[in-house]
Nucleic acid binder design. Structure first.
Lengths: 116, 116
DNA sequence: TGCTATAGTATCCGAAAAGATACCATAGGA
DNA sequence: TCCTATGGTATCTTTTCGGATACTATAGCA
């Protein structure tokens, strides 16, 4: 039983959460519950339709979010977290907290460097 | 005080941890302590010298790891986690755990799909 | 004299991710 | 009759990431 670095499963979690938009999508759905495609798009200024669709499909593929299509015209599609997807919450929250602190920490480093 | 998605600081943490090699480097240094450049390289088959150097420089820049150069020839350079860098540990461990479980979960989904 | 080990740099290349843009179907309303 | 809203797809271009390869310096050793 050696400590093999190659058995690292961090990338499994990372692969789901990384990207410019995925954490935003997940946190939004975690906090706001069920949302329509158009609501997601409006809440993420700068994202293209193609990008949003792609990210949502990938998250759905991994069973993180649920996609419900209502047979209407114009179409209505709702997205929400799955129970399984919600298990990501502690990780996301921890990263959010760490990230918030890191912004401050970076400024502290710079000050220390200037003094030195 | 509205829940603005754009204030999301997850990316701050994510930016440090993502990449093909960074989680591996961090976990290795967390578990094994101080390591020389050549030891890191040997423990990560497939990484090029350029990549390893680049990742290490970026982690050093963010105050996650410490770089100590010994004025010798041939050169000796040691890398280790900073105290601050060690604060990433819970996040990495959580992701590792989640990732390990996710590998199993994906198989479960496939089985359920086949049955349906 | 030439070879090795160490910790790098410098360039170039290909693949992958992200973005811009245009297009589609159709119910309901003006 | 034409326009709008919705939730997409299909292409093309740009940007970024990662990798291959070659090059560097120099102490010590045979």
């Amino acid at each position: 039983m050696e400590s093999e670095v190659s058995q690292c499963r961090v990338e499994e979690a990372l692969g789901i959460v990384v990207g410019k938009w995925k954490p935003v999508i997940i946190l939004y759905l975690l906090h706001e519950g069920t949302k329509r495609f158009s609501e997601l798009k409006r809440s993420m200024p700068g994202i293209t339709q193609k990008m949003l669709t792609k990210q949502l499909r990938e998250l759905e593929e991994e069973d993180i979010i649920k996609r419900v299509v209502y047979p209407q015209v114009p179409p209505k599609v709702e997205y929400s977290m799955t129970d399984y997807g919600r298990t990501l919450s502690p990780i996301l929250e921890a990263m959010h907290e760490w990230g918030t602190n890191h912004v401050i920490h970076k400024q502290t480093i710079k000050v220390v460097e200037k003094e030195a």
